[in-house]
């Protein structure tokens, strides 16, 4: 799993599991918060098929945080109002890049990936069951 995948898959796991791993990282490295978890918005540019141009379809609320683990910066951005989760994922992002508890981080993100995949599979099954073919009379 690469670093860019951590941000999304770590959002899928239980917050207690996330916190437990963050504590492990904090025990064996120096963690410094550069930017506390902050509420921000992201504009959503949408492709307009009528002109092939772009318009803004709204904004999405995110929380992002920046930390330093040993000498390496970590960052995370999570959807919606979850400041603690953003901070914890930023710490794990930095730890991954600093090679601190990397294996455990990949394992946890892997669990998130599995959970997400299972959820998608259930939904896909329901979606596929509504596929319809029409015949003209």
């Amino acid at each position: 799993m690469n670093r860019e995948e951590l941000n999304f898959f770590l959002q899928q796991v239980d917050s207690d599991a996330l916190f437990a791993l963050v504590q492990k990282v904090q025990c064996c490295s120096e963690v410094q918060v550069i930017q506390q978890s902050t509420e921000q918005t992201l504009m959503l540019p949408v492709t307009d098929p009528v002109t092939q141009g772009t318009f803004y379809g709204g904004e999405v609320l995110v929380n992002s945080a920046i930390v330093r683990v040993n000498t390496v910066e970590g960052w995370a951005m999570v959807l919606d109002q979850h400041p603690t989760r953003a901070l914890h994922i930023a710490i794990l992002d930095g730890a991954y890049a600093a090679e601190v508890e990397k294996e455990a981080i990949v394992d946890l993100a892997g669990k998130g990936q599995k959970l997400h995949g299972q959820m998608n599979k259930d939904v896909d099954r329901q979606v596929a069951s509504t596929r319809v073919s029409f015949d003209l009379m």
Binding site: Q40, P45, P49, L61
Partner: peptide, 13 residues
């Protein structure tokens, strides 16, 4: 009241 951090990548139908 929120700071706008930027733009997400383009969304397409």
């Amino acid at each position: 009241t929120c700071k706008r951090i930027g733009e997400a990548t383009q969304l397409s139908g």
